[in-house]
Amino acid sequence: MELLLVSVLNGLLYGMLLFMLASGLTLIFSIMGVLNFAHASLYMLGAYFAYEISRRVGFWVALVIAPLLCGLLGALIETYGLRKAHRHGHVAELLFTFGLAFIVEKLVLMVWGPTAVPYRVPPELDFTLFSVYGTHVSAYRGFILLISAAMFAAIWLLLTRTRMGFVIQASLSHPDMVASLGHNVPRVFTTVFAGGAALAGLAGVIGGNYLVTEPAMAFSMGPIVFVVVVFGGLGSLAGCFIASLIMGFVQTFAVVLDISPADLLARLGVAVTPATPLAEVLRVPLPRIGPFLPFLLMVFMLLVRPRGLLGTRDT
């Protein structure tokens, strides 16, 4: 019971952290149709910018400035890179962001070195908020929860309740119409990409010190974020939100549930001995493959329902 409660809490927190990263990616995809491989790179840059700013001016300044820097960078990438690649089609766009992610990782390696930088949780938030059965929950985790919930609400309202949101959504489905109404469609795209980049940057600021800020963070975080976005349905913010929570819970509970296929077979009366074919595979308990379950889920989802959980069109 105690473990269950703590695990629900952990799953929720991890899911919300994933959502922070995934929301920007979903936003960009839903408007521009671009699966941005460099998204996690912007997350990483957000963390490194925040590290540099917070050791000079302070965390709270970094919380504002670093995402803005990432947004600016996103605008530059869209204007001078993505738009050019777009002329050669969607594959070129995808490859462009893939190459960009590769280069950003190498550049970060060159500038900040390959080992972790001491980017730490600000002292103002470095205390225990409350305890559940003796497990402390730090104020910073509460802060993460707060920010990500606010983020979800803000994006949702922006897209569905504001004029800007309508223009953005219409630019996707009827770009010519929007253009003839006097809106600058390329600028809408730039804004959206910059917005998505800023969200990634914000996730970096917040996730960088909660986790570890090092050059491999983009490469290790990128795949799982992709999985969340694709599983939830490309372009669906609600789907992305649900998928984030599902993945958070799946990974958390996989750790806690110590069962293997062999155990299940034993319950059915089939004993797995070393001589059984695939015995090595069958004896793997759930915690060992927990982090790979999202990939399995994604592959399965795409095979039966290529548009994902709540997606509106095929991937």
Binding site: Y14, T135, S220, M221, V256
Partner: peptide, 15 residues
């Protein structure tokens, strides 16, 4: 645990 795949160790800590 799989190498480099676990981001959130809190569930392990709980265990």
């Amino acid at each position: 645990i799989p190498v480099g795949k676990v981001k959130d160790f809190s569930s392990y800590i709980a265990k």
